Computed example of a mutant assay.
Amino acid sequence: MAEFDYAQAISDARAKYESIAKALDTDRLTQQVKELEEEAAKPGLWDDPENAQKVTSRLSAAQSQLKRLNGAQRRIDDVETLVELGREMEDADSLAEAKTEVESIAQELDDMEIQTLLDGEYDERSAVVTIRSGAGGVDAADFAQMLLRMYLRYCEREGFKAKVMDTSYAEEAGIKSATFQVDAPYAYGRLSVEGGTHRLVRISPFDNQGRRQTSFAAVEVVPLVEATDHIDIPDTDIRVDTYCSSGPGGQGVNTTYSAVRITHLPTGIVVTMQDERSQIQNRAAAMAVLQSRLLVLRHEEEAKKKKELAGDIKASWGDQMRSYVLHPYQMVKDLRTGYETSQTQAVFDGDIDGFIEAGIRWRHEQRRQAEQDQD
């Protein structure tokens, strides 16, 4: 076994740190923290709770980012000193400790590097995620509910605030669809790589003969619209229907016509909302989701025009982006990035960081390649 090269490992860590610090612009980040702290200290901040929540959330994220950057720099300096002392004292334990720390720093820098790749137009925003069951009958509805739980558990692990806004339950088991909002800086940038068709292969728990079943579910991720987006929706372009909220039963089911379904007539986009107690609140939430989807649609149309001008750019995500195989073997594999794991239960429990980070790197490389092809 080759001897561990401390000098090279520390040099690599320092070079990566400098690259990350340059990309994130520590001076800009420091100034941003200062400005947000001043805004958060204003006496009337909480007169507008929604804006106050955004300010404090952005401040917390910027402070955390700056703390991680400064902490990584200190750790690199400290481990370099530890290696020097270990060699002078010929202390094997200190060198072993330094090796572990260098490897830990490398992992930390890899995680921080992901942040520098979230540079899309809407990556910084909160996200609205919709899951729909596809082909596969009751198994597909059950799979959709498994995915909903997976993403909510992921948000819980990451400390992201997630709120289920609408759920349409299937008759036998599972869900037909569900929409939830994730409020966290860069939630859209991270979760947008999850958009696409997901496939599950397993022995169906709903089949009396125990046959293997393949089922599908679609995941849609859109950025949360902001007041500055200017998505005008004339009243003549929408149809609003109201109905009683539905659910699996119990006191949580509404008996009033508070649920709202909005149909955007020009595009056929349909948004339903039943989480809030009043019809007014559900209508406002549904309009926000509709605006988000129209924003993405507009962005896609603009990108399509650019693609037509640039020629054929092979950067398609494809319809099926990930397979979850529970029989005859255990494997979850992303078909775009090649990232895979046999820890299927951990994945369904929300351990999807590896898939998301691999997806972000893959997307960044696709964008870079597309830019090169245009040049």
Rank of each mutant, 00 (worst) to 15 (best):
E3P: 03
E3N: 03
D5A: 04
A9D: 09
D12A: 10
D12W: 01
A13H: 08
Y17S: 14
Y17K: 07
Y17D: 08
A21C: 13
A23R: 15
R28Y: 07
T30N: 14
K34I: 07
A40P: 11
G44R: 12
L45T: 02
S60H: 00
S60W: 07
S60C: 00
D78N: 11
A98T: 01
K99F: 02
I105D: 01
I105M: 10
L109A: 12
R125C: 06
T130A: 13
A141Y: 09
M150P: 07
R157P: 04
E158A: 06
G159R: 11
K161W: 06
K163R: 10
T167L: 05
S168A: 14
G174K: 07
I175T: 01
K176N: 15
K176Y: 10
S177D: 06
F180Y: 12
Q181L: 09
A184R: 08
R190I: 08
E194T: 12
T197A: 13
R212D: 09
Q213R: 08
Q213I: 00
F216G: 04
P223D: 04
T228S: 13
D232W: 00
T236G: 04
T236N: 10
G249Y: 13
A259D: 09
M273F: 02
Q274K: 09
R277W: 03
A284G: 05
L294Q: 07
R298W: 00
K307D: 05
L309A: 14
D312G: 03
D319P: 05
R322Y: 11
V325F: 12
V332D: 04
D334K: 06
T337D: 07
G338Q: 12
E340K: 10
F348A: 06
F348W: 05
D349E: 14
F355E: 03
E371Q: 11
